[in-house]
């Protein structure tokens, strides 16, 4: 049986690449989409050599929503699974000082991903099959002073994925929301993350692969994060607003 491709949006990200390797190991062709995809040539070669699958590179800019229909048309084969690993952490202080910086974080984490996944979802719905995977964040579970611009964008993305799942559940299309918690990636390099709470990109990839196969809806990569976020969500607001988190 020939497997259909897995599309990775934001293929330069460590999580995106790890997910690509996991699905390639299962025999899926891979479509890597990113800005300046020619710089992903080494990763393309590595994926193709290690797993013996076809790997193609595609130019993709999440912020240039006008280009998205053309991007989908140029993919050639409509993927079986679309994984959005696009993300921009931004800098909270910078976002507070400069509305344009905040807008960039909001657009990169919510507006852009929602635009491209919305297009793909419509195509999947018409076909009657497929899986949409959105890599969101536990930062979206409750706004905190230290990163609420990023967090609110992820909150929007999580809510959007939830609604999309609700809409497509009866149409043969599954939507998976992934809440990774801390992950050791280039985005978090330099941050002092607690080891027990921090997943490796390969761990995220394995969790995504299993959840897609099992048709799950929402997953935390490390179960401890479900507990942590339950506690954080349930702290009464009068107390929460005085905390430093």
């Amino acid at each position: 049986m020939t497997l259909l491709p897995v599309l990775i949006l934001g293929a330069r990200s460590d999580i995106g690449l790890a997910v690509a390797h996991r699905f390639a190991a299962a025999g899926h062709p891979i479509q890597l989409a990113a800005r300046a995809p020619e710089t992903l040539e080494a990763d393309r070669a590595d994926l193709a050599l290690r797993h013996g699958v076809a790997v193609t590179l595609h130019t993709f800019d999440v912020l240039d929503t006008a280009s998205h229909p053309g991007f989908v048309a140029d993919l050639g084969t409509l993927p079986q699974i679309a994984v959005c690993a696009v993300g921009l952490m931004g800098d909270q202080a910078g976002s507070e000082a400069d509305p344009a910086a905040a807008a960039l974080v909001l657009r990169s984490n919510f507006e852009g991903p929602a635009a491209i996944l919305g297009l793909l979802a419509n195509r999947f719905e018409a076909r009657g099959s497929g899986t949409i995977v959105g890599i969101s964040s536990v930062a979206g579970n409750r706004g905190r002073a230290t990163n609420y611009v990023y967090g609110s964008a992820k909150a929007g993305f999580t809510a959007w994925l939830s609604g999309l799942r609700n809409r497509l559940a009866k149409k043969g299309v599954n939507v998976l929301t992934v809440l990774p918690g801390f992950v050791a990636t280039r985005m978090t390099a330099g941050l002092d993350l607690p080891a027990k709470l921090t997943a490796q990109p390969t761990e995220v990839a394995e969790a995504v692969f299993r959840a897609v196969t099992a048709g799950r809806s929402v997953i935390y990569v490390r179960p401890i994060w479900a507990l942590i976020m339950t506690i954080i969500r349930n702290i009464p607001e009068p107390l929460f607003k005085r905390m430093k988190l």
């Binding site: 080494a42 990763d43 070669a45 590595d46 050599l49 290690r50």
Partner: peptide
């Protein structure tokens, strides 16, 4: 840790 190319005729592997 990426493998960059393999030549099936000579068996030459290029890798990081």
């Amino acid at each position: 840790d990426r493998m960059l190319g393999f030549d099936e005729t000579t068996g030459q592997l290029v890798a990081e």
